[in-house]
Amino acid sequence: MTSEKTMLPQVVGIILDEQAQLTLEELSRACAAHAELIIELVEEGVVAPIGREPDSWRFTGTHMRRVRVALHLQRDLGVNLAGAALALQLLDEVEALRARLRAMGGD
């Protein structure tokens, strides 16, 4: 009998990093959000895709992460997009301060 493990389908993942180039359509599918909502997030300055027009926009893996966090905050905490954008900005600042604290030797 072949072991079950060897019969499992094998799939290879692709890391969505800074080189990733997601279109608006791919990003809105991946975030289960309407494209309009993502356009609003771009207008709020939460993410800055490469390209001029929504049709030619390309998003990186980091952009996707930020969009997802913004959407989660909006859905779970009842804040609007501007509020989610503010929370993200403050989270960035907290993270930067923590990193400086660590660099200075504190934990």
């Binding site: 499992l8 094998q10 290879v12 993942g13 692709i14 969505l16 990093d17 893996g61 996707m64 992460r65």
Partner: peptide, 14 residues
Amino acid sequence: LNVTIPRGVRAGQH
């Protein structure tokens, strides 16, 4: 599924 996770992945990445 058996998923191959490539080297060089960082925490928080998808």
